[in-house]
Simulated scan of single mutants.
Amino acid sequence: MSAWAAALAASPLAVGLRASAWAYPAAEIVHLAGMALLFGSIVVVDLRLAGLARQLPVTVLLRHALPAALAGFVCIVISGALLFIAHADELIGNRAFLFKLGLIALGLANALWFHRGPYRRLHGNLSWEMQTAPPPLARLCAVLSILTWFLVICAGRLIAYV
């Protein structure tokens, strides 16, 4: 076990989170609500980018979904940090937790790459908005995104069992 993880788990904040009847469950609720907001927002956009609901302009969809996804992500990061602090000594060696962190990094890298690459090039191309199918690279990013964030949720759930 890592010394810093043990120290974190022994901190007053961690002890308080574990001792409170409501603090840890409240953090879990915020974490779940954040996941629903993040994944719900992402999946709608990604399904469009994968080729469904082609009548919806991607730029309009992103304009509405991206703030919700970011709000969900902020909720997840804050609540996830609290959940980690409460059990850092246990989680630091948990394979499902480490796999989840790797998947989160992959999901963020995919989103960042898409928004700085293919989407930036597509954003000014309104003819693409009404094409019968998005470009192959956009579809690939969308499918990878849905799969990655779904696996993040699965890995998170498996933490309790590994």
Score class of each variant (00 low, 15 high):
L106I: 15
D89Q: 07
R116I: 14
L147S: 09
F39Q: 06
T132Q: 11
Y24V: 09
S11Q: 11
F150K: 07
L158D: 01
V44C: 09
M1W: 06
P25S: 11
A81N: 09
A155C: 11
R157F: 10
W128F: 09
A3S: 13
A27R: 01
H115R: 12
S41K: 00
A14M: 11
A96H: 04
K100W: 00
A9H: 05
L140P: 04
E129A: 13
A68P: 06
P134T: 10
V58Y: 00
L17N: 00
L52Y: 11
L38S: 03
G102P: 02
A7P: 06
L101E: 01
A160L: 10
V44M: 10
L56R: 09
H64S: 10
A26N: 01
A160Y: 07
L66K: 03
R139S: 03
A3V: 15
K100D: 01
M35G: 04
V60A: 15
A36M: 15
K100R: 05
V60M: 15
V162H: 13
R157E: 05
V162T: 15
S127P: 08
R116M: 15
R116H: 14
G40Y: 04
A96R: 06
E129L: 12
P118V: 15
F99G: 13
L140Q: 05
D46M: 15
L151Q: 09
A33C: 08
S41H: 02
A65V: 08
I76W: 06
Q131H: 13
V74Y: 11
A109V: 12
